[in-house]
């Protein structure tokens, strides 16, 4: 089966999820699939960084959290009819998804630009540590803001308003997340095969060699880093709608670690690896949590086995099977 046929099959399967959930009499499966689509989007953006740009970021949850906070803060000020204090102009937020979602992307993109401008001057383990440090700084910063819930975070009483969709309807919400996931995957695929993507991939192999061809590698990497941050922010905005909550816990280093685990499970060398990892991780979590509260004790050895025996994660395993 070629890649196009496989992708078409996955899209058809994705479109059928709510109907399948209804058929088996378990509508909760639609909510679980929504979570998978949201995390799949965030992990795919991390996969773009790790697998294609060669940048192992350990602070990706920070961008995810910023996206979630954008939705929560815009909701809070809108519902209280109070102006947002840190803006240079008077604005009382918005409930519109057409405002919240793009703003979540832009805010995360800009923060990623700042983090990238400083962290991309380092390499290897130093880059991992600096991205982790930035994410933890942001985590502690949000805890220190009592106006935005401090450690308790912010509850969201009203989901984003998207024209033509009712996000309180599980179907509508799922199709929004699924549609955005497909859009993000297509965008990333286009980028990876563009001249920008070629340069990003070449830089992951040998930065110095690429520089001798006149390529300002830093600028390309910075843009890739910011783009991945923006996508994580968009998925964070969707997560805030799903959980009807945003809190500093979304930015904690353990969430960044969880994203890396999902990526390793799914496979780093493929764009769909992040999505496959999110599906496997969340699926296993749901199944194992039904058996025991110590589900992580079982998930741990599964992860070790994937790393040891299925190089390239799930996608690597399947592509070897096909070849």
């Amino acid at each position: 089966m070629n890649k196009l046929a496989l992708a078409s099959l996955m899209i058809l399967l994705g479109l059928a999820v709510p109907h399948l959930a209804e058929a088996v009499g378990d509508p909760f499966l639609t909510t679980m699939a929504t979570r998978m689509a949201i995390m799949g989007m965030a992990v795919a953006s991390l996969g773009f960084l790790v697998g294609f740009a060669g940048l192992v970021s350990f602070g990706h949850a920070a961008f995810f959290g910023i996206g979630a906070y954008v939705v929560a803060i815009l909701f809070k000020h809108h519902s209280e009819a109070s102006p947002i204090p840190f803006l240079p102009f008077a604005w009382e937020g918005s409930l519109s998804g057409m405002v919240q979602l793009p703003l979540a992307f832009i805010a995360s993109f800009l923060f990623a630009l700042l983090v990238g401008a400083l962290s991309l001057r380092t390499r290897g383990v130093f880059f991992i540590m600096i991205t982790l440090a930035f994410a933890q700084m942001l985590y502690h910063f949000m805890i220190s803001l009592p106006d935005y819930g401090g450690e308790d975070g912010l509850s969201i009483w009203e989901r984003s308003q998207v024209p033509g969709l009712d996000l309180y309807n599980d179907y509508d919400f799922y199709y929004l997340c699924f549609g955005l996931l497909v859009g993000v995957l297509l965008l990333l695929r286009m980028i990876i095969h563009s001249s920008f993507g070629v340069i990003i991939r070449a830089a992951s192999q040998d930065e110095a060699r690429l520089a001798t061809l006149g390529v300002p590698v830093f600028r390309y990497r910075l843009l890739a880093f910011a783009l991945a941050g923006g996508i994580a922010g968009l998925s964070g905005a969707l997560a805030a709608n799903l959980y009807e909550f945003s809190g500093p816990g979304l930015m904690h280093w353990s969430r960044s670690g969880e994203m890396l685990v999902m990526l390793i499970l799914g496979g780093m060398g493929s764009l769909f690896g992040g999505v496959a990892g999110a599906i496997m991780f969340i699926g296993l979590e749901e199944i194992l949590a039904g058996w025991t509260e110590h589900w992580a004790l079982i998930l741990g050895p599964i992860l070790i086995m994937v790393v040891l025996f299925a190089h390239g994660g799930l996608m690597g395993f399947f592509s070897r099977g096909r070849s």
Partner: peptide
């Protein structure tokens, strides 16, 4: 050369 890029990609990854 960049070993995991194809020939075309190796040729176009220049400024």
């Amino acid at each position: 050369v960049f070993p995991t890029l194809n020939v075309r990609e190796n040729l176009v990854c220049v400024e």
